[in-house]
Amino acid sequence: MADTLQFDLVSPERRLASVQATEVQIPGADGDLTAMAGHAPTITTLRPGVLRVVHAGGTDDYIVIGGFADINHGGVSVLAEKALPKGEMTQDVFDAMIAEAREAHNKAKEFWHNEPGPVDDAAKLISDMVAIGGHIGLTPKDN
């Protein structure tokens, strides 16, 4: 297939994808980007979001939380802290991820007195998770 690049997505738990893609839409920490054949070599950290892969067989969406993407002449490798296919993101899984983010925020508030950086980062994770839910039709349960 012309104008494709190798795409690989792995998380600590498993390899989620290894396909020839025409484009990979990446939720970068400094802004979203689309990698295609011939893209300039780039390394970016990931923000929580939806990573979309377009290939000959269709389009696949993955939920990614943290990690980084390495774009080079050979393709795109994404190493995610957490990742799962969009179809596996059930309300129960989403609620568990939100609860984990809220717990991290509470721990940051306890540990980092008068240092807003880590507390703000933990709060941003909650906000990003809620945004992912909104994007895929899930709403966090109230706590």
Rank of each mutant, 00 (worst) to 15 (best):
D128Y: 13
T4R: 13
G49N: 12
T4W: 12
V64P: 00
E13R: 11
N114L: 03
R52V: 10
K86R: 09
E115Q: 07
S127E: 05
M97V: 06
L5D: 10
G74N: 11
A131T: 12
A96P: 00
D120E: 12
A122C: 01
G31I: 02
G67S: 04
G67Q: 04
L79Y: 11
S18N: 12
A123W: 09
T59V: 09
L79V: 14
G28S: 13
A122T: 01
G87P: 03
V54Y: 06
A69K: 11
A123I: 07
G74H: 12
V130T: 12
A122P: 00
L46S: 13
G117L: 12
G38K: 07
K82S: 06
N114A: 08
S18Y: 10
A21E: 03
M1R: 08
P116Y: 08
D70K: 13
L125F: 06
L138K: 13
V64L: 05
D70H: 13
W112T: 00
G31L: 10
R102C: 12
I71G: 02
G38L: 02
T139A: 12
P118S: 10
A108L: 08
G137H: 08
I65T: 06
D121A: 08
G66Y: 05
V78L: 04
T45C: 15
T22L: 14
A2S: 10
G117Q: 05
R15W: 01
H39W: 00
A35K: 01
A83H: 01
V130L: 14
I126Q: 09
